[in-house]
């Protein structure tokens, strides 16, 4: 009987100690996580600010006037004209089996023709 009583007391004491110890550990972990959260939030905030600045900069770099100037200086590309957009069926070699005559009409050499045929197959 005495043993049971002692066992219960020991059990309660141990449990209490475990709970207290566990709670302290939990508290510390929560603190650490809170610090981590706060740090991450700060980083997110800072990144959001940077993204905001970069977005504005990207928009400025994509200013059509600037792009037009750069394009004319470096790549010699102009705006697309209506006649540059053609139907696929307008390509002469699709229906006409690409006789040499048609190739000659299209004013392209055989190498270019082969490339176009390959492109068509793909």
């Amino acid at each position: 009987m005495i043993n049971t009583k002692a066992a219960i007391s020991i059990l309660w004491t141990t449990l209490t100690c475990v709970v207290i110890f566990g709670s302290f550990i939990l508290k510390n972990q929560v603190h650490e996580l809170e610090n981590e959260l706060s740090r991450i939030n700060k980083e997110i905030q800072s990144d959001a600010q940077n993204i905001q600045v970069l977005k504005a900069q990207w928009s400025q770099l994509n200013n059509p006037q600037r792009l037009r100037k750069l394009a004319s200086e470096h790549i010699f590309l102009n705006n697309v004209r209506a006649e540059q957009i053609i139907n696929y069926s307008a390509l002469p070699f699709r229906y006409e089996k690409a006789s040499d005559k048609n190739v000659a009409i299209a004013g392209i050499n055989k190498k270019q023709y082969k490339q176009l045929v390959r492109a068509e197959r793909e």
Binding site: A82, E83, Q84, I85, I86, N87, S89, A90, L91, P92, I105, A106, G107, I108, Q112
Partner: peptide
Amino acid sequence: PADFTLDEQRKHIKASF
């Protein structure tokens, strides 16, 4: 889309080549 006929479109292809 532009409403060029097929012949007109072919002329454009030819001209561009």
